[in-house]
Amino acid sequence: MNTTSIHQAVDADTALSAKNDTVDELYRSHNLWLMSWLRRKLGCKHDAADLMQDTFSRVLQKDDLSDIREPRAFLTTIAHGILVNHLRRRDIENAYLMALSQLPEAESPSTETLCMIIEALTKIDEMLDGLPDHIRSAFLWFQLEGITHAEIASRLSVSVSSVRQYIAKALLHCIEFA
């Protein structure tokens, strides 16, 4: 059966319901398998259940599901992205709380602020992914410490013009990510 021509012929509502059927089918056939895949990766049942829900809600956001040939490969590709993001966020959250616990109490942020900060830090970390360490550090010092190019240069023992190249390179890298 040629599903493409059928889809072209039907109206949007029917297309939507066909999509829901596909998701339904994906869920029924593979949810246990995906759950055990996630559990193996995470070592935690609750997190695995959360990530599985995230995976399927991402699947639901896809426009076209009519062309999935390898359902498990398709699901693991999506789940892997979600998993990496989850681990990154968890790592950042732990590191940030650890950093905060070293600060005086008066500076403790509210829960809401904390959520927002961790979200922001996770995004930044993701955006800086793949940059060499010295370029990453130069960019972070400039953005967060507000020190001069010359100070960064002396910390890294490089010339000021190199520092400017680093900052420009980091910016371009981040823009391409966004």
């Binding site: 950093a99 905060l100 900060i117 990453r136 010092w141 967060l144």
Partner: peptide, 8 residues
């Protein structure tokens, strides 16, 4: 300070 110690 805290952000730097996380990201850097």
């Amino acid at each position: 300070k805290a952000s730097l110690s996380v990201l850097d």
